[in-house]
Every structure is written in structure tokens, then in C-alpha cells.
């Protein structure tokens, strides 16, 4: 690791000030489970690191299922997993966050870090795409909001401008009869990187027909994908076998994966359809219950 300046401001405004005023390259530090590894290997070489964990507002989960939850950007996976109401309303999002790493990693890792690390294989990011998360972003011009799918632009790259950072993620108000799910395929049962991840979030009406759906895929393209065609396959259907088959075909068709030792193009493409289908069944059953 080479040297860098470190700041741990107590307010969002002060953090923006440091990030915007930095000479050279500045990095936000949330849980550090990606950043510290990158500092160690030299993959990241910042001149300034701004730790956001001392900002009180970022350490809280507020709201509820009906109004929508707001999760501060310094809230960890362990804290998210302990929030019963959140886990009840958004089991897919919470499970995806909890899949990340070990108990030790959970004690530090954040959803915002997963998103801004911008790995196509991040586990929480596809679940946030499916959930329709909105990011609250602070910057030199004040605050703005952006849909989560606008944040990652390529491996390790985001659309955030200099001086900007994510202060919170917002889960939308939960409609009745809704459910979400995230599944990943890994060669082991724990502590591994997804070969494919699939997130589904849907809402049913009183007759069981799907009125809204979002489907996402991880690890099959340079960024996490929101697959509109797969969502359209569900909307209007009863999420029956025919609709699930169309969803699986649409998910596979959206894949532009890499070929590596972890999984071939053919394998990833096939598994994307299978996982999307399985996630949709879980989301549907959750919406029904």
C-alpha cells in the first residue's frame, strides 16, 4: 500500500467538501472489504480516503414497508440481516446482502460498497436492481436521486461525478402481494464469486396475475443487467409454466458473458435462464403468501 491522506468527517457536507476538493484521486471508504484489498494489491492508489462511517445519518435504517425503507450508506450486512421488518418486506434483497462473504465480512460490508465497487458479479447489486432501489447521492450541487441501474457503467466504474457519493439507498414502498428473491450459482456453498446471479421482484393482483415485475442478472455482462424482456414475460401472466419458460428464454438471450475457468459462455447463458426462473418461482410464492 502506498501512502494516502485519511479523513473521517462527521457530516455529509464535510465529506463532499473533502471529495470535491481532493487533489488527485479520492475514494470513499464504507466497509472497506473491497477497498482495503485493492489498496493492498495496488489495484487502487488513492491520494485521499474519506471514511463515511462517522456520519450519523448514514448509520441508520429508517422508514417501513408501507412508506419504503431508507438505508444509510454505512449500514452493514450484519445490521441489515438483524432488521426483522426489512427482512420480512424484502427477503430477496436481505438474502442477497447476507450472501456476501463470511460473518467477518458481514460485519463491515455495505450495499453501497457492493454497488459502487461495480463488479458485474456483486451479489447485492442485482437484488437492488430487481427491487427498484433509488440512490440518494450527495455532491457539490446538493442532493439528487438516481435509479440504481444508472450507477454502474462498467467493471469498477460508476456514473458518480467528482465529489459525489451515495448517502442512502431507498427501497420503494412495498405494494401488497409482492415478493422478491435473489439466487446465485457458485461452485462452493460459501465464500465464492457468482458465476451467475438472478434477481426477481414482482407484484400480483387479487386474481394472482402479475402487475409489475423487475428481473436482473449478475455476472453475465460487463455490468449487472436489468432485463426488461424477462420482466415483460411475467407481467400480465399468472407466473405459470408458460410465462416462466418465456422469462428463462429472455434471461438467457440477454447474456453477454465472459468465458473463463469459472464458467463457459454456454454454461453461464443456460444457468441464467434456470436461475431467473427459480428466483421468479420463489418471488411468486412469497407474493402469494
Amino acid at each position: 500500500m502506498s501512502g494516502f491522506q485519511y479523513e473521517a468527517p462527521a457530516t455529509v457536507e464535510a465529506a463532499v467538501g473533502f471529495l470535491a476538493g481532493a487533489k488527485g484521486n479520492a475514494r470513499v471508504l464504507a466497509g472497506g472489504t473491497d477497498l482495503l484489498v485493492q489498496l493492498r494489491t495496488g489495484a487502487a492508489n488513492p491520494d485521499l480516503v474519506v471514511d463515511i462511517k462517522r456520519i450519523g445519518e448514514l448509520r441508520q435504517i429508517s422508514g417501513n414497508a408501507a412508506s419504503g425503507f431508507v438505508i444509510g450508506a454505512a449500514v452493514t450486512g450484519a445490521e441489515i440481516g438483524e432488521h426483522k421488518e426489512l427482512a420480512k418486506a424484502w427477503p430477496g434483497f436481505v438474502e442477497a446482502m447476507e450472501l456476501i462473504g463470511s460473518t467477518q465480512i458481514q460485519g463491515r460490508a455495505t450495499p453501497g460498497g457492493n454497488l459502487c465497487n461495480a463488479s458485474p458479479a456483486g451479489d447485492c447489486t442485482p437484488a437492488m436492481f430487481a427491487a427498484g432501489v433509488v440512490c440518494v447521492i450527495a455532491g457539490p450541487n446538493g442532493r439528487r436521486e438516481a435509479p440504481v441501474e444508472q450507477i454502474p457503467t462498467g467493471p469498477g466504474k460508476t456514473s458518480l461525478a467528482k465529489g459525489e457519493f451515495i448517502v442512502a439507498i431507498k427501497l420503494p414502498a412495498r405494494a401488497k402481494n409482492s415478493g422478491d428473491a435473489y439466487l446465485r450459482m457458485i461452485p462452493r456453498t460459501e465464500m465464492d464469486i457468482a458465476i451467475v446471479g438472478a434477481g426477481v421482484n414482482l407484484t400480483l393482483d387479487a386474481s394472482g396475475a402479475c402487475t409489475a415485475a423487475r428481473v436482473s442478472l449478475g455476472a453475465v455482462a460487463p455490468t449487472v443487467l436489468l432485463v426488461d424482456a424477462a420482466a415483460k414475460a411475467l407481467i400480465g401472466s399468472k407466473v405459470d409454466d408458460a410465462a416462466l419458460a418465456r422469462l428463462a428464454a429472455a434471461a438467457s438471450a440477454a447474456c453477454k458473458p465472459i468465458d473463463d475457468k469459472r464458467g463457459t459462455i454456454e454454461y453461464r447463458t443456460k444457468v441464467a435462464g434456470v436461475l431467473a426462473r427459480r428466483a421468479a418461482v420463489i418471488a411468486r410464492d412469497r407474493a402469494r403468501s
Binding site: 473521517a8 471508504l29 472497506g32 482495503l36
Partner: peptide, 13 residues
């Protein structure tokens, strides 16, 4: 009180 890896925490934190 939280279990963490001390190799992933900065001393300045």
C-alpha cells in the same frame, strides 16, 4: 462487539 477481519480495518479508523 462485531466480528471482523482486522486486516480489513485501517488503524486510523
Amino acid at each position: 462487539g462485531r466480528l471482523v477481519c482486522s486486516c480489513l480495518v485501517l488503524g486510523v479508523e
